[in-house]
């Protein structure tokens, strides 16, 4: 049954890829006195409303979008999740 699914895509820098933004935030937190922050990775969250036959289909089509446009698989990982409700 086709309906609109709310889908979250979380895009983060791939493991091993330099993340200047995350690193700068980590150092700034240290300067503010937050000790023990070992790593910060800065990514982005993209929220889509996708029409599909089921949650699996919504995920599958969103993953295609990620490969093509939303993420750059050369430097970024992404996780696709259907939100409840």
């Amino acid at each position: 049954m086709s309906r609109v699914w709310s889908v979250d895509v979380r895009v983060t820098p791939r493991e091993g890829i330099l993340d200047p933004a995350g690193e700068t935030i980590r150092r700034a937190l240290g300067n503010l006195g937050y000790e023990g922050v070992h790593s910060v990775r800065a990514g982005r969250l993209i929220r889509l409303e996708v029409e599909a036959d089921g949650p699996e289909a919504a995920v599958a089509s969103t993953e295609k979008m990620c490969e093509q446009l939303i993420a750059n698989p050369i430097i970024e990982d992404y996780v696709v999740r259907v939100r409840e409700g």
Partner: peptide, 12 residues
Amino acid sequence: SRPQVQVGDPFT
């Protein structure tokens, strides 16, 4: 098969 892409950090 590309090698890992270099990322620039103009701030550094």
